[in-house]
């Protein structure tokens, strides 16, 4: 195939160039968008090292950067505040727990679903589980509110009816790590279950039969047939998740706790921190610095995770 093309290339020189040009016009709209919306802002990272001056009529946007003073790493000083430590702890903590919990839960549900003999019911479960994935966090926040609302919420009313002092959910930080975990699992488990289930369905049934003939129990079959087959997809998803370990789902942390200030110690994460510090202090330098660190750490993590996986098992690595 390669030799065939190489032999043809000199002859089809101008036609080949024309073809490349035509194909380039197809790539162009997407490429232009990527340059404007993704690559151009990367140069904006320079703002993390500047005392940013707001653009004025005389000095419109890119020009004002030239008039901003270079301040080195001053914008990174926020890292040494307790607020920063809290939000870093929250971001990493939630992500690590959720990656582990999400993996176990989704794999377990997918394996259970693959063992059902009534395929119709399995399909129904899958349809219902996948539903929350398609809703926004704004809507999900209302779902939760229906249970936790301090005056009419179902749980609060039940507590009152039982004679227990109702919990003021939106002012009590200690419950929120659990509530947020439930919310995250509720919305995202269906998605990963579908992925794992389709990987399980792709496994050749004769492997299970062979194992059964050799006397393997169902549990042993799961350990020695199913899980090894799931390994590549688990690794790919893990690398992706590790790369996002410093990113949080803005919608979850912004709208589900209803922006309640007493909850900030457990709901503040990097993304909300960047947004709030820009919105309320207008500190462009510092919020850019925080965002830059977030991206840098994510980049290092994803490259690191991929390198480790490639060393252990080259076929499973992402790239």
């Amino acid at each position: 195939m390669l030799r065939h093309q190489a032999a043809r290339r000199p002859v089809m020189g101008s036609a080949g160039r024309k073809k490349t040009l035509w194909l380039l016009t197809m790539v162009a709209p997407g490429a232009i968008w990527l340059i404007l919306i993704r690559y151009l802002p990367m140069f904006g990272i320079v703002m993390a090292f500047l005392d940013y001056r707001l653009p004025t009529r005389k000095m419109p946007f890119p020009i004002n950067l030239l008039h901003s003073d270079w301040v080195g790493l001053d914008n990174f000083q926020f890292l040494f505040t307790s607020d920063a430590l809290t939000m870093i702890r929250n971001t990493l903590g939630y992500n690590i727990v959720w990656i582990a919990l999400g993996l176990v839960l989704a794999v377990a549900l997918a394996i259970m679903m693959s063992e059902l003999t009534k395929k119709f019911l399995a399909k129904t479960y899958q349809t219902l589980m996948f539903f929350p994935y398609f809703l926004s966090w704004v809507v999900a926040a209302y779902f939760l509110f229906a249970f936790l609302d301090p005056t009419n919420g179902m749980i609060v009313r039940a507590q009152k009816a039982a004679g227990v002092t109702p919990i003021d959910w939106y002012n009590e930080p200690k419950y929120w790590p659990v509530i947020l975990t439930i919310c995250s699992m509720w919305k995202n488990t269906g998605y990963s279950t579908v992925l794992y289930l389709s990987a399980i369905t792709g496994i050749d049934r004769s492997q299970y039969e062979a194992a059964a003939v050799d006397g393997a129990t169902k549990w042993q079959q799961m350990l020695h047939v199913t899980l090894p087959h799931l390994k590549p997809i688990i690794i790919v998803l893990l690398i992706m998740n590790v790369g996002k370990i410093f990113n949080a789902d803005f919608g979850l942390f912004w709208s589900v706790p209803m922006n309640s200030a007493p909850l900030f110690p457990v709901t503040q994460v990097v993304d909300t921190y960047v947004y709030r510090s820009y919105k309320f202090t207008g500190d462009v330098g510092m919020s850019t610095a925080a965002g830059f660190l977030q991206n840098l750490v994510g980049f290092i993590c994803i490259m690191g995770a991929n390198a480790i996986v490639r060393r252990l098992d080259a076929d499973s690595s992402l790239f």
Binding site: I37, L40, I45, F292
Partner: peptide, 18 residues
């Protein structure tokens, strides 16, 4: 662009001001 980006604020400023 999936593994690295400019971050929220630079993207916001480019989109809005530029």
């Amino acid at each position: 662009t999936m593994i690295f980006g400019g971050g929220l604020i630079p993207t916001y400023i480019v989109c809005k001001n530029l």
